[in-house]
């Protein structure tokens, strides 16, 4: 049971972080379908940082440096989306999809090159970080508390305050609703959209490193992040683009994702003799059903996905 709570909180953390990222991008008016790719690149940055840190590094330094590496990688990678979507009026769906393909391919190529350079016989795309990962975990009576959970709570509160209580957040949201009106009130729409996309890069990258350290101590980058970026988008839609609701939605989805990791710990679930594949599918099925019921009265920002053109009215 403790294990179930632990994994639920962990997976919910990932979903909250990434969904908040999507939330910032969409409130500014850009649809970020490349979150999946951003997660992979963020995970790559963090994983490489863990791998190349000298072994004596203190836990606090590890935590800070790894978080810095993954957020920075995510931030840089999201520039690809910002440039294409804001300045070149590119189709955001194509660019997002390309970023997802590119994220996995680039991470695989980079990790394989590093592995082969270190050891000519090693052609895998795996990065190991057994010792460094320990820095993130505090064991409290069998419950593995993870520092990332704290980061998530901070990000959640900060997002709420930023979006609803600051001038910046309200201006950002105006750019996603009616950019022409925002512009006429003296807000620089392009700048706000850049901010939205870059924040989504930071949060997406952080989500990526949490994902690959959840329960495992090595990651094979060929696998990408198994649709988690899109699950986060589903969470965001279910949460009606509002941070508090996103948190609740993430807990629900996190629970179903956690079940596939720990269902064998529950006798009554094992006795049902449901194949493990069904548990793997569960989060995706639930998200489809939930989306079917909640998308009808969507609260999506009105101008999301439409490139802003100063000249049009």
């Amino acid at each position: 049971m403790l294990l179930l709570i632990q994994y639920t909180l962990l997976f919910a953390s990932i979903l909250i972080l990434v969904a908040l990222g999507g939330c910032f991008a969409e409130h500014s008016g850009v649809i970020n379908l490349g979150l999946e790719g951003i997660m992979v690149i963020g995970a790559l940055g963090g994983a490489l940082m863990m791998r190349y840190l000298p072994s004596g590094t203190s836990a606090v330094a590890i935590i800070l440096l790894v978080v810095l590496a993954s957020t920075l990688s995510g931030l840089l990678y999201s520039v690809l989306l910002a440039v294409a979507a804001i300045h070149f009026k590119a189709d955001q769906t194509i660019v997002g999809t390309a970023m997802n393909m590119l994220g996995t391919a680039a991470a695989t190529v980079i990790v394989k090159a590093l592995n082969t350079a270190a050891n000519p016989d090693d052609v895998s795309s795996t990065v190991q970080y057994v010792e460094e990962k320990a820095a993130f975990i505090v064991n409290i009576g069998g419950f593995e508390f993870n520092w990332f959970m704290v980061f998530t709570v901070i990000a959640l509160i900060a997002s709420y305050i930023t979006l609803y209580k600051t001038r910046f957040g309200l201006r950002l949201m105006a750019c996603g609703e009616h950019p022409q009106a925002a512009d006429s009130a003296g807000i620089n729409v392009y700048k706000m959209r850049w901010a939205g996309v870059l924040i989504s890069g930071v949060l997406g990258g952080l989500g990526g490193i949490v994902y690959i350290t959840a329960g495992v101590s090595e990651w094979k980058f060929e696998y990408g992040v198994a649709g988690f970026g899109f699950l986060a988008l589903a969470v965001m839609i279910f949460g009606q683009w509002k941070p508090t609701r996103i948190a609740l939605a993430a807990l629900l989805f996190g629970l179903f994702r956690a079940l596939s990791n720990v269902y064998f710990g529950f006798d009554f679930l094992v006795n049902l003799k449901i194949p493990s594949g069904v548990y793997n599918m569960l989060p995706y099925i639930i998200s489809l059903v939930v989306l079917a019921f909640t998308s009808g009265k969507s609260r999506a920002p009105k101008s999301e996905g439409i490139p802003y053109d100063k000249g049009s009215r």
């Binding site: 649709g227 839609i237 599918m281 995706y284 099925i285 989306l291 009808g296």
Partner: peptide
């Protein structure tokens, strides 16, 4: 149901 086809598509991919 107004569900974005990209998101439902991804979910169906994994299912």
């Amino acid at each position: 149901f107004n569900v974005n086809e990209v998101i439902s598509g991804i979910m169906l991919n994994w299912i």
